[in-house]
Structure formats: C-alpha cells, structure tokens
Design a protein around this nucleic acid. Structure first.
Lengths: 214, 214
DNA sequence: TTATAGGTATAACGCTGTTATGACGCCGTT
DNA sequence: AACGGCGTCATAACAGCGTTATACCTATAA
C-alpha cells in the first residue's frame, strides 16, 4: 500500500488540489469529500488539515488556481486595431472558461457554497482585479471614438460583468433554452452593449461577429 | 413534551416548510438540517420523508412557494401609459425580491446546491413562465413605438433575464462594490437596454428614473 | 368488527468534517 | 555526534448529517 510517507511532503498537497479539481469538474461539488480525496492520493484525513486547514481551505486553493488560469487566458487576448472586437473577445474567453470549468467558476463568483466554502474579501479582490482587462478595453473603445467620449468605464465594466456572469450562470443552470441559446444571447447582449455605449450599430455588429468567431 | 401526534397531520407539513424557509432566510443553506427542523417543530426525522420524500424535496417545496410569492409581486405591477416604465418596474420588483430573499432566490435559479437540491425540468419551467411578464412589456414597448418595430421580444427578454440575474447574484456575493453599487448598475443597465432597443435616450432615462422610484 | 392506509417514534446504518493523540523523520543547533 | 523542535503522518474517535427498516397507533372503510 502506497502512503503519503513514501513521497516528499509538498507532493501530497499538489495531488490533493489536483484530485479535488478533477472531482469537482467531473462529478460536481456534492462528490467532494475529504475521505474520498485522501483515499485517492493515499493519505489520511489529516493531510487536508495540515495542508489546508479545512475542506473549505482546500476548495479555496482550487479556486485560486482557477482564477490564475482564468487570468492567463484573459491576458492572452491581443490588442489590435479594433478595441470593440477586443472587448468581445474578452467576453468570449469569459464564457468559454465558465463553460469549460463551471464548478470552479461557480466557486469563484459565489454561486456555490461548495463544502461550506465562503468568499473572503481577498477572494473577491482577486476577482475584481480581472475587471481591469475589460475596463481598459472599454477605455480604448472611447479613445478610438467608437464609444461616446464621456464613457464611464467604471460603470460600464460593472454592467458588462453583470451580463457575463448572468449568462454564464443561467446557461449552466439550463435556463437559456428554446428559440435562442447562450450564444445568441451573448451576441445580442454584446451588440446592444456597444450600441448603447455609442458605437455605430453596423460596426458594432461586425466587431461582435469577428470577435466571437475567434 | 409536544409531539407531532398532538396535531392534525397537515399541520406538521406546514410547520416544516415555514421553519425551513425561516432558517434558510436567517442562517443560510448550511444551517438547514432535517434533525434541526423536526426538533424545532416537535416531530421526528420521518416527518421529512413522509411529507417530502427527502431533504431536497423539502427545499423544492420552499422554492415553489418562493416562486409563487415572486409571481404574486410581479403580477401586481400595473400597466400604465409608459410600457418602458412598466418594464423597469418589473426589474425593480425582481431585484427587490432577490434582495429580500436571497437564499430562496438562489435555489430558484440554480445558484445554490442547498442540501443536495437540483433543479428539475418542471422547476425551470416555472421559472421560465415568469418571463412572460417582461416579454409582454417588451412587446408593448415596441407597439407603442418606443422600441424598434422589428424588436425580437424572445431574444430581448433573455438578455434582460441574464442582466437581472447577474446583478442579483453578484450583488449578493458582494462583487458590486466601489464607486458604483447595485442600484447604479441597475439604472445604467436598464437605460442602456432601452436605448439599444431603440428608445430615445432622454425618454429612456426618464422612464428608468420614474420606474425605479416606485 | 376487522382490514387498510397513513402518520409517527425509535433506533440504526454509513457517511460527513473535524480533532486529539502519538509516532516518525528531517534539519539546524549545541 | 547528540539534541530539540517542527512539520507531516496514521490512527481512532466524536458529533452531526441524510436516510431507512421497523413497529405502533389511529382513523377510516368494508
């Protein structure tokens, strides 16, 4: 029988985080249990408490790594000559992440309660930090004359955040069905967002099409 | 000692639902437990299973009553001569409900996972049914010439749903903070929604102000 | 009067997160 | 080289959880 003593201590921590992320992704929050995880990596329940303090502590670590992955993808969006398209691409990346890792996403933005986990002020701060990417894009839209000169990026980025989160969550819950699906709502929402911000309807539609295409 | 046998059977069911709603509202999903509830109403754990089949079944009943309360308030919004204002009022009622009963709201729209509860197709259907109120309002906006004649109410109502849900959830999670709060985002979102749908910016702003005022 | 159905209480099963305890090995100090 | 401390570990236990098998009691129907 292979136990945690057979390997360097730091290894056990890594294995636990990875296994937790895997179970969360593949079987959902209800399947997460300390006993299951430690059994899978060949350790005892104490491992959870020496390394993470508690089960919510382990979930928090999974969430932190999720935020890091999220930011990594967001940062990859290249600035081009169409800032509206760039904004659309950021939103596409957002939705792709939420769709690829819905449970981690839910933990990140408070829709979960998994294993008694609750967001701390620091956690929220890490989430809010991500908003600087779309906020800068919105500012570039205004600077390029696509959005109104008096555009309030602080207000608009919150409105956009709200729309992206609502879509991600409702789509995951199965509420965006029928004649229009999540992609239709995303395209419509983004176009209307740009138009209301002052962009020309035709140009906005073109930027949305091009930004969502990839 | 007062037990469940001292009263008519139907009474126990009512007491359990009420106590569950109370605990959920006052102490959150984590505080919900069968043993606690039956202890509070003077019954045994079997009561949960004879009346609701399971704990998720009890939560489902709490949710159903929540939807009924929600629809009751939504239906109270009177149709006047300003359909945009009516739409804004519906959204105000939506946000007020989500703020007053955040845990019930979370169960209704899938952001919870409370006590292993999962939405069924029927549950979602009851939620989707509520969308006919804003959908009708949007159609009236188009008929009154405020929104474009080719307004697609099916698409727009989904976009609005997404915005209202995102705001409710993120505000509850503590993510809408700083220079602009939930009310600012709500006002901005509704104004931009109307403008993108074709309404005159000044009239839209006026309808939003008047609709949010009450 | 007897049969049936429904609600109830008790006690138990296996699961959960968590913790007290004691042992082991590594590492810097004396 | 011997020591002390620290981090990690396995074991075993505790209280609580959702759930269920069982037996009992009562009210209604045949």
């Amino acid at each position: 029988m292979s136990t945690a003593k057979d390997r360097p201590a730091a290894h056990t921590r890594r294995l636990l985080v990875d296994e937790a992320a895997r179970v969360l992704a593949e079987e959902g929050p209800a399947a997460l249990s300390a006993r299951r995880l430690v059994k899978a990596v060949g350790a005892s329940t104490m491992a959870v408490y020496t390394h993470f303090g508690s089960m919510p502590g382990l979930v928090r670590e999974v969430m932190r790594e999720g935020i890091a992955r999220f930011e990594g993808r967001v940062a990859e969006v290249a600035a081009g000559d169409d800032p509206v398209r760039e904004l659309v691409e950021l939103c596409r990346v957002y939705q792709e992440f939420a769709r690829a890792e819905p449970e981690v996403y839910a933990v990140m933005f408070g829709g979960s309660g998994t294993a008694g986990f609750e967001l701390t002020e620091d956690d929220r701060g890490m989430g809010v930090r991500l908003l600087r990417y779309p906020r800068n894009a919105i500012r570039r839209c205004a600077a390029a004359g696509r959005f109104r000169p008096d555009t309030d990026a602080d207000l608009l980025v919150r409105q956009l955040f709200v729309q992206m989160h609502g879509l991600a969550q409702l789509a995951h819950a199965g509420y965006i069905i029928g004649v229009y699906g999540p992609d239709d709502v995303l395209a419509g929402t983004l176009r209307d967002f740009a138009v209301a911000a002052g962009d020309d309807p035709e140009r906005a539609a073109a930027s949305v099409r091009s930004g969502l295409a990839g």
